[in-house]
């Protein structure tokens, strides 16, 4: 398993965890972020093995986003999940929380041992994140479409309290079908919420199939632009591109427009048969498939994996 010990920077008493002119993006940083993304995938497999069912593929599509946000973009303090000036992270697609929990544990927000009891009776870590139970979860989610509004509220509250932090809201592409997203989009531009950054994980799939077949959302960039947002399109698995973009957005303190990043991703990225099979939303890997998936994620030649039927939708026993 990858090491996690060096991941989090030490707290800085001056509160300057990140300078406005970030260090150049070195090959070492890029390698570290790639390793963190692998860590997200491996931990996702490990935790879902405890629950016996989970959202592997939705989490794999945003593994690089998680890694880049939590190990390069966001301003956080190790062991201080409630630091008032921290950057915030909200998930419209709360079902990818299994990939977030290992990073929160790595930041010292809760003991790593809690991960071992993922979804078991009495454990705070469920399929969807609960802010009242999990330190480091900035907002509860599970009902799709609320997160951008809540993120906007954080921007407005921070403004009144004279705190400047950035608010990152990760949205699913199927979530674009929710009306409340566009209420929030309109309001954020109106409020000049320049420190609000929406990230659309454009992995192309939702429960019932391909997003563009279920309910088309294109032209997506045009929609966000028309709502008054600054739009960036990026390869959501290219940590160098993601880190460069996040750093640029963070440096730009004069921006009045909120920013939307459309991250082109693959649902199930990293495990071939999940990438290829549209049915992979909720599932469970038998031990032999798990071994093959881990080998593939670790970059070893994968033995031929037997594609399995995804578990019945909604079966979360």
């Amino acid at each position: 398993m990858p090491t996690t010990a060096t991941a989090a920077p030490a707290p800085d008493p001056m509160g300057a965890e990140r300078t406005l002119m970030p260090a150049p993006l070195t090959p070492e940083t890029i390698a570290h972020l790639e390793e963190r993304a692998r860590h997200v995938r491996l931990e996702t497999i490990r935790l879902i093995a405890i629950a016996k069912v989970g959202h592997y593929s939705s989490t794999f599509s945003c593994a690089e986003l998680f890694a880049t946000l939590y190990y390069d973009a966001m301003r956080l303090r190790h062991g201080e999940p409630r630091w008032p000036d921290r950057d915030r992270f909200l998930m419209g697609k709360g079902h990818a929380a299994v990939g977030l929990y290992p990073l929160l544990a790595d930041w010292g927000f809760f003991p790593k041992e809690l991960l071992d009891g993922y979804t078991r009776l009495g454990n705070p870590l469920g399929d969807h994140p609960d802010m009242t139970k999990v330190p480091g979860v900035d907002f509860s989610s599970g009902s799709i479409g609320h997160a951008l509004s809540a993120g906007l509220g954080m921007v407005m509250g921070g403004r009144m309290m004279n705190r400047r932090f950035d608010v990152y809201v990760m949205l699913g592409d199927g979530e674009m079908q929710e009306g409340q997203v566009w209420e929030a989009a309109m309001a954020a531009a109106h409020q000049k919420a320049g420190n609000l950054i929406a990230i659309v994980d454009r992995n192309g799939y939702q429960l019932d199939g391909q997003v563009d077949e279920v309910m088309g959302i294109e032209p997506l960039a045009g929609k966000w632009r028309a709502f008054g947002w600054e739009v960036h399109e990026v390869d959501g698995h290219d940590v160098a591109a993601l880190a460069t973009l996040f750093r640029r957005l963070k440096q730009d303190r004069t921006r009045e427009k909120p920013a939307c990043i459309i991250a082109r991703t693959l649902k199930g990225k990293g495990v071939g048969y999940m990438e290829r099979e549209a049915g992979w939303h909720l599932g469970y890997l038998a031990p032999e498939d798990e071994a093959a998936a881990i080998a593939e994620i670790m970059g070893q030649p994968a033995s031929p994996a037997i594609p399995r039927e995804a578990a019945a939708q909604g079966d979360a026993r």
């Binding site: 008032p84 915030r88 802010m131 900035d138 907002f139 609320h146 997160a147 509004s149 809540a150 993120g151 906007l152 509220g153 954080m154 921007v155 407005m156 509250g157 921070g158 009144m160 309290m161 705190r163 409340q180 929030a184 309001a187």
Partner: peptide, 10 residues
């Protein structure tokens, strides 16, 4: 929902 977000900031 925004009111909830506002409330998280104190």
């Amino acid at each position: 929902s925004a009111a909830a977000g506002i409330a998280t900031t104190g």
